[in-house]
Design a protein around this nucleic acid. Sequence first.
DNA 1: TTGGCGTCAGAACACAAGTTCGGAGGATGC
DNA 2: GCATCCTCCGAACTTGTGTTCTGACGCCAA
Lengths: 217, 217
Amino acid sequence: MTTRKRLPPRRQQILDFIQTFIAENGIPPTVRDVQRACEISSTSVVDYNLKVLKRDGYLNRRPDTARGIELLDETGQPVSNAPRVQIIGAIAAGQPIPVFSTEGAASSEEFDTIEVPPELPRRHGKLFGLTVNGTSMIDALIDDGDVVIVKPGMEAVNGEMVVAWLRDEEEATLKKFYLEGDQVRLQPANSQMNPIYSSADNVEVRGKVVTVIRKFA
Amino acid sequence: MTTRKRLPPRRQQILDFIQTFIAENGIPPTVRDVQRACEISSTSVVDYNLKVLKRDGYLNRRPDTARGIELLDETGQPVSNAPRVQIIGAIAAGQPIPVFSTEGAASSEEFDTIEVPPELPRRHGKLFGLTVNGTSMIDALIDDGDVVIVKPGMEAVNGEMVVAWLRDEEEATLKKFYLEGDQVRLQPANSQMNPIYSSADNVEVRGKVVTVIRKFA
DNA sequence: TTGGCGTCAGAACACAAGTTCGGAGGATGC
DNA sequence: GCATCCTCCGAACTTGTGTTCTGACGCCAA
């Protein structure tokens, strides 16, 4: 396995561009796409750098075929274009819930991410992930270590599973949300457990749970 | 929205080929790729059919760019190349577990499928899905309607979550598997529940659970 | 200095590939 | 028959695109 260290700026720039191009267009760029984007004066320079990147295991090239660049990950596997969701924090009883900054995508380098089926962002837009610490969400059928995928938002429709913060109890929780008059019923996903009732202004909804991802060994 | 009815054989053939080509190669085919594969005598015929397919909403074409075909789904969204796993049956207590035919991919038309992150097939190979009926798997933190993704196989290593069939009890279940001497301990994922002990030859392992997929409204 | 090495520039080559055009059957309806 | 539409064919045109060649510049060590 070739080493994967810091690259010369030109090469890093090329690699970054290829990545974003694929993310934006779904197909790899041509040599001349790279040339224009990186303001390189000749295609031969691009070709040269692509050859080096291929030698060092960053990508594959299908010879003589248009858009024949194929990005590889650290293990040499073809990289997928599946969307990744940022894991912006943890959720546990007694721990505050991170605020979702709907705007600033920030530098995606700072956060862990998790691969999700493309269907999710297509249907729900911008999403965030939260890791679950401890077994306090077990009544929502969510285990320690699970990742919940959340669509940020303050409102909830009755019956939706939400990320809620109980002010008085200082507790984060995942429950189905039912507004009943001026109080809120928070119903566990586990039918064997009993609901919690709380006054409406004690409940802060932070987002809706879209799905949960659990990894087994 | 244009209607999406049965297509003339030529057009269907072209559409099918584009689909499989993308699945196999990760990039869309060229017009001449289509021509060769479908044994069409002229690129103009391909172009003509692609134009019609575009008009009818089956795909997009980036003009003047190589491999500019982009498949669309029923809603007009670009189709993802995320892998799909077949849901070959259901799992519930008291219901036999379908046998996974590791070979015959069969005609993928017959089964429901579910989109999964590409990472899963990359790491585990061929996978199957089972829908969970009823709440009998609740001690495994799996709800009614969840889909468990299973890697088929008869063996299990201690600690793995498996799809098991208990012969005497005539019960299907999802549990962590521990072989202890000549008996098997089946440990629920829910730490508040107690394990089941059974003789080793009463337990039929059908596969390992790789992940669980739960959809919220 | 000299030579090797990595990198880049400019140009050209050769083929790949999207597009267009004129024409031709075949089905359908008037 | 005649017109019209859908589909196909063969060929050509134009541009896209991977590849290669020659030369040059800077860096570093012998």
